[in-house]
Amino acid sequence: MMDAADSLDDLMARCALRDQRAFAELYRRSSGRLLAVAMRIVRRRDWAEDVLQESFVNIWNHVTDYSRAKSAPMTWMTAIVRNRALDWARRPKHETADEDLDGLIENWEDSTPGPAQRLVAAGEAGQLDDCLRQLSGQQRQSIALAYMHGLSHSELADHLGEPLGTIKTWIRRGLEKLRGCLEAGNAA
């Protein structure tokens, strides 16, 4: 029997032993959040569900490799879903209308302190949120839009109305600052 107390780690280990019931339970517990991750990137419900389905087949096929990854189950699964969603979103026929992107950008504009507060509201961002606050609004906005909504450098440039080089610099500097801040936090 599946125990409610089984951790995701336990479920992953049982999946590696080809336990399909454990896999069903893993799906039940994680699919809601992972569908949201896919949805933000591909921005269409049926596409997001296709991405979710592909990702879970992938998770089942590769779960035997999981322990080597040395990351939390949710992190590992999220990476699989994001990868699949990014591939999907970048096939030309799957590109969404620009108005969709503009809507996203508008929600993120004036990015101090709106998005940071949104992160806090989720209650899980913790140290990442503290560190994101230390970035400039532009750096934070570019990184969050890229990570959460899968925007590429050129999409960011088009929609933020800045040159490509500027966007790349914001992201690069932002990432370096973020890493420095997170590592300092871990050491403390």
């Binding site: 569908l35 979710l52 899980e124 961002a125």
Partner: peptide
């Protein structure tokens, strides 16, 4: 880096996938 940025994934409201998704996977 996946570990560092993953908290951003938790910021969206969860969605309930339709039944066809699990049926296809199974």
């Amino acid at each position: 880096w996946q570990e560092r940025l993953e908290p951003l994934s938790a910021t969206a409201a969860e969605l309930v996938p339709s039944d066809r998704v699990w049926r296809g996977i199974a």
